[in-house]
Design a protein around this nucleic acid. Sequence first.
DNA 1: AGGACGCCCTGTTCGC
DNA 2: TGCGAACAGGGCGTCC
Length: 261
Amino acid sequence: MPELPDVETFRRVLERHALHRAIAGFDLEAPRLLAGIDEAELRKNLVGHQFDSTHRHGKYLFAHLDHGPWLVLHFGMTGEPRPFGPDEAPPPYARFVLHFQDGGHLAYIDPRKLGEIGLTPDPQTFVREKGLGPDALGLDWPTFRALAQGARGMVKPWLMDQHHLAGIGNIYGDEILFQAGIHPRRKMEDLSEDELKRIHQAMQDTLGLAIGAHADPAQMPPHFLIPHRHKGGHCPKCHTPLAHTKIQGRTSWYCPRCQPP
DNA sequence: AGGACGCCCTGTTCGC
DNA sequence: TGCGAACAGGGCGTCC
């Protein structure tokens, strides 16, 4: 689930449900999620404090603590935050649950436990240490062109490499290339200026529309590839049966007619 | 360096 | 129908 539009949706959930509520404690069911910090240190930094703002960079979500540091959340392939009330049971796969002093809770659910929970002095430091590229949302054309300049190799892996751009994953990589009419195996060095521009435009349009749909496939515009991205699916533009291919271990779906090699 | 793979996990879907 | 294999929206490390 969690690519840029999903994480942006999660950020808004935190913005609405997690700010200005004193943290009474937490349960950590899956300590393997902790990255670069132990449970005791996390406890010391969270308990008795509260979040007062949020931030997102690529697929990483940050929540600022009132005493300085930021909680960092990454959702792996299956994670998401879910608030629940004082009298409700935690949702299934709640691996990390914050308890607020007002009686409410915020669960971090992650069936596959491939996410990450950590702390950082500030998002900029985190982004630098991780070597993340600029956030894909709102990235302007000159910056995008400069990044693409001199890039080599297939366009799909390039878009998905968080060191180039932060936020695009397998699903939105496919969606962007579909909207731009570019085959996922096309080489970066072979793309024309016009094709790069189409990718950049498709990226902005796709991310914006996906966020508008709260990253919910059921609410995506009719011309989106996402709802058709499965066996037996057809191109929403020309009705040609969709094709798929394995690129670096991930399945890429595309329309063989709209996205010629 | 690009690209292919394996691994970390676990639930769901596919295919014989 | 049943069961094991393959797959799933991420990221990292290794090898050629």
